[in-house]
Amino acid sequence: MVDLSVLDLVPVRQGFTPGDALRESAELARHAEALGYTRFWVAEHHNMEGIASAATAVVIGHLAAHTARIRVGAGGIMLPNHAPLVIAEQFGTLASLFPGRIDLGLGRAPGTDRATLRALRRDATAAESFPDDVLELQAFLGAPEPGQAIRAVPGAGTDVPLWILGSSLYGAQLAALLGLPYAFASHFAPDALEQALALYRERFRPSRQLAQSYAMAGANIVVAETDEEARRLFTSVQMRFVGMIRNERGLLQPPIDDIESYWTPVEKMHASRMMACSFVGSPATVERTLKDFLARTGLDELIVASAIYDQQAKLKSFELLKNLALSP
C-alpha cells in the first residue's frame, strides 16, 4: 500500500480571511492525522491573495502545535529566497519543539514573480547556487565540526530530513547525487514525471540520510459520493488553474455548474495539461484510475492536493480517499 500524504496550500476562500484559512488548515491536519496520513506539508508562496502560507515555518509551527503525531513540513521552502543559516535556525527550532516530526522540502524556484523577489531582497540569480545552498543548510543542521565558527542554534545536530522538490530533470539529478528523497510537483507540472523518476532511481547514490531511493509525487484528488458531485467540486481547482494562465491568482472560488462556460478552448487545453495528474470522481472511479497511475509510476508515496472550496467536502474527500484499496 502506497503511503498517502497531504499538500495543503492553505487556500483563502472567497468570502473568508487568511485567518480562516489557517484555522481550516489546522482542522484538516488534525483530520489527516486521525485518518492515518503520513505527512502534512505546506508551501512557500508570496504575494498571492489566495494562499496563506507565505510565512511557511510559522504555519508549520501552528500545524504541529495542533497535531500530535503526523509529520509536518515544507513542500517546500524556496531556498533561493533565504540564507541557509536562517532556514537552519527556523527548522532547527521547529525540530526542537516537535522532535521527530519536521520535514524540510527544498525548491529551487522563487515561488513568486520577479517584482516580489526584489521585495524579498533576494538576487534573481540566487537559484544558480542552489546545490551549494542545500549542502550548506545540511551542514548547519548536522553535528557541528570542531572549531566551527558559525552554528545554527537551534539547528545544529537536529538533522532535519531534507527533500529535493522539482518539476524537471534538474531536481531529480540533484536528489540522486545527494542521496535525498525526491518529490515531483506533478500536481501542476506533470510533463516530465516518469522521466524524472527513472533518472532519479537510476542515478541514486546512498547517503547518511537515505540508503535507497524514495520518490513521492503530487496529484490533485477530489473524491465524492458520485462522479457528478466530484466533478462539480473540482471546478474550483480548474478555475484556479485558469487563473494561473490568466495571471489572476485570486481567492479560491466556489464551484460552478458549467466549467465550459468559464474557460476558452485554449485555456482548457493548457489547464488540462497542467492538471493531467488529477483524479476526480466517486470512490470506485478514483480507485480504478489512481491504481493505474501508481502501478505505472511505482511511487513510494503520493502527496495529495485538494483545493475544494467547501471545508466539509474537503474533509470528506480525504476520508474517502484514505479508505480506498490502492495497492498497485
Rank of each mutant, 00 (worst) to 15 (best):
A34L: 02
A57T: 01
M48R: 13
E27I: 09
V86G: 02
H62M: 10
V42S: 07
H45N: 06
S25Q: 10
D20W: 15
L94C: 05
R118N: 03
N81T: 01
R30Y: 06
G100S: 14
I60T: 03
R23F: 09
R39W: 08
H66L: 08
G75L: 02
I87K: 14
R121K: 10
A52K: 13
A52F: 04
I60H: 00
A124V: 15
P80Q: 10
G73W: 04
L79F: 14
R118C: 01
H82G: 07
S25Y: 13
G61V: 02
N81S: 04
P110G: 03
L9Q: 14
T93D: 07
A74S: 13
R23W: 12
G19T: 14
V12R: 08
T56P: 05
A26S: 14
A32E: 09
T116V: 03
V12H: 14
D123A: 11
L117V: 05
V86C: 07
A126I: 04
T38I: 04
A32S: 12
Q14V: 01
V12D: 06
A126L: 04
G111D: 11
L117K: 00
A54K: 04
V59E: 03
S96A: 15
G61P: 00
A29F: 04
L9E: 06
R122S: 10
L28C: 12
V58A: 15
L85I: 06
P11F: 15
E89F: 08
T38A: 13
G92R: 01
T125S: 07
A43T: 15
A29I: 06
T17Y: 11
L35Y: 04
L7G: 14
L7E: 12
V72L: 05
V42W: 06
A64V: 06
M48L: 05
G75H: 08
T56D: 02
R118A: 08
I60N: 02
A32N: 10
V42Y: 04
H46I: 05
A109P: 00
L106P: 14
G19M: 07
D103N: 13
R69D: 12
S25C: 14
P18T: 10
I87H: 15
F91N: 01
D113F: 05
G111A: 11
T125H: 09
R23V: 03
R13E: 13
I51M: 07
E24W: 15
A29T: 07
T67H: 05
W41A: 08
A26R: 12
G73S: 08
H66A: 11
L94E: 03
T56E: 04
L7R: 13
L106V: 10
P18Q: 10
A32R: 13
